[in-house]
Each structure stands twice: as structure tokens, then as C-alpha cells.
Design a binder for these strands. Structure first.
Lengths: 110, 110
DNA sequence: ACATTATTTTAGTGAGTACTAAAATGACCT
DNA sequence: AGGTCATTTTAGTACTCACTAAAATAATGT
């Protein structure tokens, strides 16, 4: 019940959840997306996410493919998407205003 | 940004948030709802919730009234309500089935 | 059977945090 | 000013948990 909150509490797990949001990926592929953390840690995080019901697993041979269970998340999923979109928009805004500032710097007369 | 997740990570803070979900309450009143925890802890939790933007504060004299900022929570608010309703439904179900079991126990012949 | 690849599990460590008790702040009253 | 009431803040402690490194499990290939 509160396993979902616990699962979402760790930033790294939210990053992983986002990584498998619209395409499934094997544990190894996911690990390659986070080169700064060990494979073991990724596997543990995936276990927590799965136990919380936030991702599902599909085994093919020795590969374990994970994907977000968006359907069953309902409002939670919407909220996460909202946050991620907002974060992107914020980044975009900062990048653009930085670009504008850069153009101003280049364009000014000395 | 992830302050919201951090705030929601602690079960006690979720309980407090729920306590001020549809009626505001002073820090003292809230504390009285959780007799097993110190006043200081409650105050700290309220600070975290407020910093995360999940509750707002209205000061009247020496009283600080807190209330959930449901409007600005959007999907997050919906999800929380969903969870709480589900939890209630589950409790209700268990209570009822326990009552049924109790009736069965009373009704059986020895 | 053995080696290789993909993943999980275990044991141990360091950092973050929920908590308590006590001190500090702030508002009201006489 | 001094005194109480409501709340916040501080200092210290115990516990949880994200992480690493290494060992264990599992599936495939030779």
C-alpha cells in the first residue's frame, strides 16, 4: 500500500521508471542508461519498482524486460507525466533564455 | 521539485496531510490527533509539507492553521484521494467480512 | 561439462532522516 | 516587565536505505 510511496521516494527509481515509461528495456539496457551506478543497484531498484506494482517484467531467455504499468497507475501516472513535462518545459525555457542572453552578448557594441 | 516526493515519503506526513485535507487545523490540534508523537516532530513535519507546497499556513495570533492545498495538487490530489478511498474500502470490507465471520461463529451449534 | 552472458542476491558501509527532549521564539495577558 | 500559551528550532540518537563489491542463480552456446 505504501510500497508505492517508498518506491517513488528515491530519485534514481523515478529516473528508472521514466526510462521505461514508453518503451520496455532489459535490465542491462537500463543499466547502460545509468553508467554511474552499479548493475546490482539497478537490479535492486527494479525489484522495488516491481514489488510496488509500478513496472511489469517480461522474461525472454536470460533477458528480463521491464516496462512501466501506466494503465494501472491512473492519476499517479498523469501526475508523473505532468511533472516530467513541466521539468522539460523549465529546462527548455532556461535554454532558450540563455540563448537569448548569449545573442544579446554577441550583438552588443563594445 | 523532488521536495514533494520527499514530503510524501514519510507515512506520518501523509497522515498529517490527510488530517488537514478538508478542514484546516492548528499545529496543536494536529498534534492532539497524533498523541504518540512529540509536538516538535509534528511541527517539523508541517514545515516539510509547507516547504513542498502541499499545505498552506494561516497565522491568527499565536495559532498557525494549516490546510492542504488541494487545488494546486491536481492529479496528485486525485491520486491521494483515490488511495485513501481504496484503503477505507479495504478496511470496510475487512470489517464486514470479520462481522460476517463473527455472526457465523455465534450462530454455529457447538 | 564448461564457459559465457544476463541478472539477482548477499554482506557491509556511509549518508540521510524521523524521532525525542530541551532551549528558543513569538503572541497575548495582567 | 513578567508569565503563560502556541509553536519552532536545535542537538543528539537510532534506524532505514541507496550504494558497492563480490558471490550466487539462471539461461544459452560450444
Amino acid at each position: 500500500m505504501s510500497a508505492v510511496f517508498d518506491a517513488l521516494a528515491a530519485p534514481r527509481r523515478r529516473d528508472i521508471l521514466r526510462r521505461v515509461w514508453d518503451r520496455e528495456a532489459s535490465a542491462g539496457e537500463i543499466h547502460r542508461s545509468f553508467p554511474d551506478v552499479s548493475f546490482g543497484a539497478i537490479s535492486q531498484h527494479l525489484g522495488v519498482l516491481e514489488a510496488a506494482g509500478l513496472v511489469s517484467r517480461r522474461d525472454v531467455g536470460r533477458f528480463h524486460y521491464y516496462t512501466a504499468r501506466r494503465r494501472e497507475m491512473g492519476h499517479l501516472g498523469k501526475w508523473l507525466e505532468e511533472m516530467w513535462d513541466d521539468a522539460l518545459a523549465t529546462l527548455k525555457f532556461h535554454a532558450e533564455s540563455e540563448e537569448r542572453a548569449s545573442r544579446r552578448r554577441k550583438g552588443r557594441k563594445p
